[in-house]
């Protein structure tokens, strides 16, 4: 694996202003609060977290579908936050996105062929070349070419996601941000799609940023995994390292919740109490202290630094 960094994110923040009604004070939701990470070329970085922890927002910020409040994102050494609109349009082909819901991400009035062709049109590809590329892409994702004249509603969820993947691959991007690509699919289909993504990576050498809430899915596909909680990165490590030696109490709790397919397995399950606090009024100090089994006074006051404990193993916790 090459160690060159394709994406470097530093201090990324996204605050949304939320109005609570007429004449009331506006509150600020800190959807993403100071996230830093790097993605190496050719690897798969998984990001996991509960709903509302800011992982999808992070994906959209990296795609510049949303503008960040603060922070920098360097893609191959260039700060994408500084790209002008026309420059962004030109560079879009290098990073593409796979969306969560394949039922909503495809235009219901366009044929499969037109859907996959669309990104090719943005770079002004000739018609003949376009047709060939579409055939190749359909073959790559395992959709029979004879289906290219059909509409999205004629396909199953898994097939639709394959079409979404073909569209994301069309421009041969370097980085693919997959925002919960299997969350809306049946479990039996999930594995197929994940295997497809891995096969495609082997063949074309993409870099993935894989966002999911399912730890077992992420473990399977990722080289490294980052765990997010309430807009902040809690722990980041090599996949095996994280699953075998989780350091952060939140990661430990998440991992203990994965069911083990063995009736004799004795496993202690750590149950977290309480709800995820609202991101418009996050707890002081360590954001996790309200639900943390080992929280101390210090956790309530000081924000723990996101620091490297072992080689490549980062964690934000005072107690580690």
């Amino acid at each position: 694996m090459a160690t060159e960094e394709i994406l470097k994110v530093e201090g990324l923040k996204k605050y949304f202003e939320v109005s609570n009604g007429f004449l009331r004070k506006k509150s600020i939701v800190k959807a993403v609060d100071d996230v830093s990470l790097t993605v190496k070329r050719g690897e798969t970085l998984g990001i996991v977290g509960e709903s509302g922890c800011g992982k999808s927002t992070t994906g959209r910020l990296l795609m510049r579908l949303l503008d960040a409040t603060e922070g920098t994102v360097h893609f191959e050494g260039e700060n994408i936050m500084e790209w002008s609109r026309s420059e962004l349009k030109k560079r879009r082909r290098d990073f593409q996105m796979i969306f969560q819901d394949p039922f909503a991400s495809l235009n219901p009035r366009m044929k499969v062929e037109e859907i996959i062709e669309e990104p090719l049109l943005t770079i002004g590809m000739e018609k003949k070349e376009r047709k060939e590329r579409v055939s190749q892409l359909l073959q790559d994702v395992g959709i029979p070419e004879s289906y290219k004249g059909r509409f999205p509603h004629e396909f199953s969820g898994g097939q639709r996601q394959r079409i979404g993947i073909a569209r994301a691959l069309a421009l041969k991007p370097k980085l693919i941000i997959a925002d919960e690509p299997v969350a809306a699919l049946d479990v039996s289909i999930q594995a197929q799609i994940i295997n497809l993504l891995m096969d495609l990576q082997k063949e074309y050498g993409f870099t993935y940023l894989f966002i999911a809430h399912d730890l077992s899915v992420v473990q399977y596909i990722s080289d490294r995994v980052g765990v997010m909680y309430l807009g902040q990165m809690m722990e980041l490590a090599e996949s095996d390292e994280l699953y075998e030696h989780p350091l952060h109490p939140y990661t430990q709790a998440l991992l203990s919740a994965i069911p083990v397919p063995d009736i004799h397995a004795k496993k202690e399950k750590i149950t977290l109490t309480g709800e995820v606090p609202s991101p418009d009024n996050p707890p002081s100090g360590c954001r996790f202290h309200t639900r943390c089994p080992i929280a101390t006074e210090r956790c309530k006051q000081e924000v723990p630094e996101f620091r490297e404990i072992k080689n490549g193993h980062y964690v934000a916790c005072h107690e580690v």
């Binding site: 030109k90 879009r92 969306f99 495809l106 366009m110 990104p119 421009l171």
Partner: peptide
């Protein structure tokens, strides 16, 4: 705010084309 409009934007499709090909027909 449909996902497929966002998808089109993420691919770099121009506003005019999004309106013509995605928004109008739908």
């Amino acid at each position: 705010n449909s996902l497929f409009i966002e998808a089109a934007r993420s691919m770099g499709v121009s506003n005019l084309k999004i309106m013509w090909k995605h928004i109008l027909p739908n």
